[in-house]
Design a protein around this nucleic acid. Structure first.
Lengths: 230, 230
DNA sequence: TTATAAACAGACCGGTTGTCCTGTTTTGTC
DNA sequence: GACAAAACAGGACAACCGGTCTGTTTATAA
């Protein structure tokens, strides 16, 4: 029963290690999840501090305001999620159409096995914050634009290879992004991912199939690395 | 300069008239606008009371909680907006495809002349509230379901008339609703309604045109009665 | 008229929110 | 080792939120 017990999990205010990058990452991790699951306004900084195990001073040091934190989540996490879930797979696909189809299927499969639909991170925040603040809106609009452009660029590349000559790249990209966003919106509200497959089928039977050999090469590639898209 | 001036706008606490229905409507009017423009969590009851010119007691008398108010907005206003903007025009159209096209064009035209995109009321609330509360989610999911069913029923009627035999009604409806929802999401974020026309064109060139005579009968009917769809 | 409930007014309260502020500790630099 | 800046801790605070409460006025029915 001496004065100091060193094995106690909590009463160990011995040393402290400054890890600014790690702490910043921890906060962003928690904020990313909370903003998507509960939304921006419904997530209090107190909740985030508790969930991340971070003091108010530390939080304020890295993110002076809640808005700054949200902007960081948008710029670093939401944009990365779109990149990882959509842009990279589309670029890696054999064609724009095939890429869109692969992402739809991958996300649908992921949601079905997961049994819970949290919705698209970008759309979730876009709806809540687009009209609330111009900075939010511009940041989110930029991600949408990059998303669409990746698809339209891919289709243009297809066209320069002699394929897809009858398709307008901008319109194709807009429809793909819109169909996905809207399908995720319905899937989230109904808590049922099947609407994603409905939309994909509706697209394939008409918009997405057209010339190509139907459902050729339906390799179920693993497009999503982890449980990221949600 | 006598004691009482009867023309003063405010100092007239003479009489009061109980108008429960009118007061309830006034609150719903304000709440509908505020929930769409700023969202549920960002709209305080104090704001709504001030905007509607209603006392706290009156508000609480008609809507015991904020949730009850939001539920009323969803059931009575959002559902009505979908009915007015989508369901009625589709039912009145010559065919499901024609109805979908007409609504897309009408909303796009309205947004362009209005110069500001507030987004789809249903999708706005769906994103913010679907995961927040089961009651919210169910109410919103029901509206989505009715929306889709109106379109699929219309297409089934077309099929019984010998048209559209190669189209799956459920998939067609899902794609139409998803494309519209997603397009409105992008239009709101970009504050630019042109994406609606992009999506419609993408659908028409492939999904929506198929057999029919292209852009036949492009009468620019006035589908939206007033500035409702936003 | 009178009683009875509905409709409304407005103050009040506990809890929460985001932010700021004052310290303390760690880290990098000369 | 001295020193300044960065990193972090934790409390304080004013504003605000949603809900409740009491009281008054109006409508309804007996």
């Amino acid at each position: 029963m001496s004065a100091e017990l060193t094995v106690q999990p909590k009463p160990r205010p011995r040393k402290r290690i400054n890890d600014p990058e790690g702490m910043r990452k921890k906060v962003l991790d928690v904020a990313e999840v909370a903003f998507q699951a509960r939304g921006y306004h419904a997530s209090s900084l107190g909740d985030l501090m508790a969930a991340a195990g971070v003091s108010g001073g530390a939080l304020h040091h890295h993110f002076p305001t809640k808005k700054a934190l949200a902007l960081a989540v948008i710029d670093e996490r939401v944009a990365a999620a779109v990149e990882e879930t959509w842009i990279a797979p589309v670029l890696a696909a054999a064609s724009a159409r095939e890429g869109v189809r692969a992402v739809f299927e991958a996300v649908a499969a992921e949601l079905e096995q997961q049994g819970f639909v949290r919705g698209c991170p970008l759309n979730n925040l876009a709806h809540e914050l687009s009209l609330a603040d111009p900075d939010f809106r511009l940041a989110l609009a930029g991600i949408f634009a990059g998303w669409r452009r990746a698809i339209s660029d891919k289709l243009r590349a297809d066209q320069q290879a002699g394929r897809e000559e009858g398709t307008d790249p901008e319109r194709f990209a807009a429809l793909a992004v819109a169909a996905y966003s809207g399908a995720m919106s319905m899937a989230k509200t109904a808590q049922d991912a099947s609407v994603l497959r409905d939309c994909l089928a509706g697209l394939e039977r008409s918009a997405l199939s057209s010339l190509q050999g139907g459902l050729a090469a339906r390799r179920r590639r693993r497009v999503l690395p982890r449980s990221r898209a949600l």
